[in-house]
Amino acid sequence: MAASAKTLTIDNHTFDGDWTVVLPRRGKQRRHSFRIRSPEQLQQQQQQPWAPIDLETDAVRKLKLMQKIQICMKKMENSPFYHTLLDQIQTPEIFCCFHRVLGSEMKMQMVIYGIGSIESYEPPRLQLSLAILLKRKFSWIGDIEVFDPVLSTTECQVLEALGCSVLSINEQGQRCAQKPTMFFMPHCESMLYDNLLRANWGVELLNHVVLFGNSFDVYEKNVSYSKNSAMVDSTRHILAIRQFTKEFRIQTVSDDYFGAFHTSSWHFFSPVLETELQYID
Rank of each mutant, 00 (worst) to 15 (best):
L86I: 15
F34A: 05
C72H: 02
L85A: 04
G114V: 09
I94L: 15
S120K: 15
I71V: 14
S265M: 11
V203E: 01
M76W: 06
L206N: 03
I69W: 02
R35Q: 11
D58E: 08
A51C: 15
I238D: 01
Y225G: 04
S104C: 13
A230L: 15
C176I: 10
W140G: 06
E40Y: 14
S4H: 10
P124N: 08
E247D: 06
I118P: 02
R30V: 12
V210I: 15
C188P: 00
K68W: 01
I238G: 00
F268A: 00
S129Y: 13
M76Y: 03
D58Y: 07
L211P: 00
A177R: 01
V101Y: 01
F34W: 13
F98R: 03
L130S: 03
I250M: 04
R35P: 00
R30A: 06
F268T: 01
D18M: 12
R136E: 12
V21H: 13
V166W: 04
P39Q: 09
V166S: 05
E77T: 09
A2K: 03
L23A: 09
G173I: 02
H32W: 15
W140R: 11
P180L: 07
M106V: 12
I94M: 14
N200L: 03
A230F: 09
L128H: 10
P123I: 08
E40H: 14
G163E: 13
S129V: 08
L197S: 01
E189P: 02
Q278C: 05
E204P: 00
V232L: 07
G27E: 10
F248T: 00
L130G: 03
A240D: 04
F147K: 01
R242Y: 14
A260S: 12
L277R: 06
F34P: 04
I115V: 10
D87K: 14
F244D: 02
E171S: 08
F244G: 01
F183E: 00
Q127G: 07
A3S: 14
I250D: 02
R26T: 10
K179C: 02
N200K: 06
Q46Y: 10
N170M: 07
D18Q: 08
K68L: 12
Q48T: 13
Q127F: 10
F184M: 11
M66D: 06
G202P: 00
L159C: 08
F212S: 03
S152P: 04
